[in-house]
């Protein structure tokens, strides 16, 4: 309960800034609307009220987004193509599949890099380079290439999600596998332990905290990848497709509703990983 007050203060502050920003950004648009309808006499209060309740504002006010979310999440049946639950489920599926593929790939690469020193130097630059290419440029290529092999539907989008999520896992796990102290490694040497034994009995368990930290970053990255992929390939739906549709028709309220849904989904996934991490690490006795 001690943390409730700071959290509430931050939420209030964000909402306040959001309202002020919305009023300022939309005021010009609202003035034009008043002018077009021939209304010349209006108070500042009228202007602010109008700015916060426009149909197509530059920045929708929080209560507009909340109303939209209420409508699209709770009132619309989840089977409808307008429902954010429907689209969120699509994004969730791609994210989770991409995250699993990416994590497996990331851990695998880290194992290779740690067990073969020459791979560190020869492979790491490529791994880093892979992440310097903007995913928005790469995503259409991946879709087109995979289409050549008749890989369509959810798979190419999961691949794009995996592409973004393997990197933090590789970097984190390389660090994790190398985290044992020199003394702990010397100990293994005094037993003449094989490299595989040292890996299984020391490096792998020692990397557990790094594993969960990597997983958190990876799941958030996978969601970004999935949304970008949906913007590229929007015919199958998903939150990214809703973003694209919203921007086509200037439906800013719809864009923000989809955006907040994606953020909530990401936060929920990260929170879930955090929970599993806490339970596991308590079991492994890393913490009291």
């Amino acid at each position: 309960m001690k943390s409730a007050l700071p959290i509430a203060s931050v939420v209030v502050a964000i909402l306040a800034i959001w309202y002020v920003a919305a009023a300022l950004l939309n005021a010009d648009l609202q003035r034009d609307l008043f002018a077009n309808s021939g209304r010349t006499a209006y108070s500042t209060q009228d202007l602010i009220e109008g700015s916060l309740n426009m149909e197509r504002p530059k920045l929708p006010a929080p209560h507009q987004v909340a109303a939209e979310l209420y409508k699209l999440v709770l009132l619309t049946p989840p089977t409808s193509k307008r429902s954010l639950v429907y689209h969120g489920a699509i994004t969730l599926e791609e994210t989770v599949i991409g995250w699993i593929i990416g994590s497996a790939l990331g851990v695998g690469l880290a194992v290779l890099i740690v067990s073969m020193r020459w791979l560190d130097r020869s492979m790491m630059p490529w791994i880093v380079a892979s992440q310097t290419v903007p995913i928005i440029a790469l995503a259409p290529m991946i879709v087109v290439i995979l289409n050549q092999f008749n890989i369509t539907g959810i798979a190419p989008k999961a691949v794009i999600a995996a592409y973004l999520s393997f990197f933090p896992v590789t970097v984190g796990m390389v660090k994790g596998f190398r985290s044992p102290e020199p003394l702990q490694l010397d100990l293994m040497r005094t037993y003449s332990a094989t490299r595989a034994q040292t890996f299984l009995k020391l490096r792998a368990p020692a990397s557990a905290p790094f594993f969960f930290a990597s997983m958190k970053v990876a799941v958030a990255a996978a969601l970004v990848g999935a949304v970008v992929a949906e913007v590229t390939k929007s015919e199958d739906g998903g939150l990214g497709a809703r973003l694209l549709a919203g921007s086509y028709y200037g439906q800013t309220v719809q864009i923000w509703a989809a955006l907040l849904t994606a953020a909530a989904l990401s936060a929920a996934l990260v929170g879930l990983v955090g929970l599993v991490a806490r339970l596991t690490q308590r079991r492994m006795a890393f913490t009291s």
Binding site: L183, Q184, P205, A206, A208, M284, F286
Partner: peptide, 10 residues
């Protein structure tokens, strides 16, 4: 036996 116990915490 090392200067530190070097027990594995897990």
């Amino acid at each position: 036996v090392f200067q530190a116990p070097a027990l594995y915490p897990w």
